[in-house]
Design a protein around this nucleic acid. Structure first.
Lengths: 214, 214
DNA sequence: ACGTGTGAAGCATTTCACAGCG
DNA sequence: CGCTGTGAAATGCTTCACACGT
């Protein structure tokens, strides 16, 4: 048995974050040409402890070979499957401001299977452009039609904080099931919809705290 | 006794993150004109539990009045003091690409006391501009001089992943004590230097995981 | 012999429930 | 009386240490 379909056992949020990290590590390992890694190899590279890594994997099945280690290629496949990124996800970006363009400019999203398939923007002048880097650009009132039509499941909110709440409602109405919120606004979503907040200011404040008490 | 200087007792990382959230919440409360809040008010607004909030505060002292609640203004001051954001922090932004400009474009950093006092950039053509929005723009080799001169304590890495490692070394050599790393590169810093990573792709993968197992 | 997989121990964080105080 | 502050209980996560399979 290699891959255990995710069980009803609760998997810690922290485990999921670490799996993402392991996956990135393995990119490097693969580039270095190694075919096999041990949990301690990975631990050294990403600053955790080997037992932790084995436990993390154990939630999903038996990925390794006792006495040997993990076959890098298989392991990475298993991790991706565990995370649900063995496929590609259609996302909508809402807000074509500074931050929105920054997100479009980096390919770290595309590399990990998140495709921005549509952009929604309030400002008619921008919408006028029709598309940006081959990604179609729509006005807000098209959202209800486009999201289902394109099979978009994730919405990325990169508008100004005042508009975030309204946008989140619109996205949910349109059928989006996951929201990544880049604004500091605190949003509420109904059961069955997943919300994640990204707020660098919080990380900076964590830095400040540690620096202030060093 | 109101504010207890942070003790040697270990304060959970999660507590710090929540304090940042409470602080944002209180902005809203203040705007709404309320003078007093209870832990349950805050809990409702930011989706935690009242006991948690009281425990979080208790690490730092006694902020409230029994039988009454918290005076919004005092509370917010106390939280800011606890977090070390009752002052302003000089930061250097390294990398004037898409993401860098996005960071400059938002005032959510400035609002919270993080002032970007200098930008460092590799590309001579950009450096040629001399400044951006009144923030001076320098070439990389000026870093060793400028960082101490301006009293910069935090470095923000917004360059391409391949350059992140080198930049982190340069920042540390220049005397920066805290680093916020926006690249997916895994950095290592010496003891006494604080590193925080921001990686939206990880949050998206967390979303994907939950959506895939809904 | 070696490194994985895993129950059990150890540690940290969250929640409960009530004493304490205005 | 109401809501904070806080020990104690409950829960959750990480680390240990060893059995297991190759």
């Amino acid at each position: 048995m290699a891959f255990k379909k995710v069980s009803r056992i609760k998997i810690p949020e922290a485990t999921i974050r670490r799996l993402s990290l392991y996956d990135r590590c393995l990119d490097d390992v693969r580039k270095a040409g190694k075919k096999i890694v041990s949990s301690s190899d990975i631990a050294r590279k990403c600053g955790t402890n080997p037992a932790q890594i084995r436990k993390d994997f154990a939630y999903f099945g038996e990925f390794g070979v006792r006495g040997v280690g993990y076959y890098v290629e298989n392991l990475q496949e298993d991790i991706k499957k565990a995370l649900g990124i063995d496929r590609s996800w259609n996302c909508a970006l809402v807000g074509a401001g500074n931050l929105g363009f920054a997100l479009l400019g980096t390919d770290s999203l595309a590399e990990r299977g998140f495709r921005i398939s549509a952009i929604f923007e309030q400002d008619p002048i921008l919408v006028e452009m029709g598309s940006f880097r081959d990604i179609p650009l729509f006005s807000m009132d098209q959202m209800q039609r486009i999201v289902p039509e394109m099979g978009i499941r994730i919405g990325i909110i990169a508008v100004s904080p005042e508009n975030a709440l309204k946008v989140s409602h619109q996205l949910i109405d349109a059928g989006v099931k996951g929201i990544l919120n880049f604004t500091p606004a605190t949003l509420k979503v109904p059961l069955g919809t997943i919300l994640k907040n990204v707020d660098f200011a919080i990380d900076l404040e964590g830095l400040a705290f540690q620096l202030a008490n060093a």
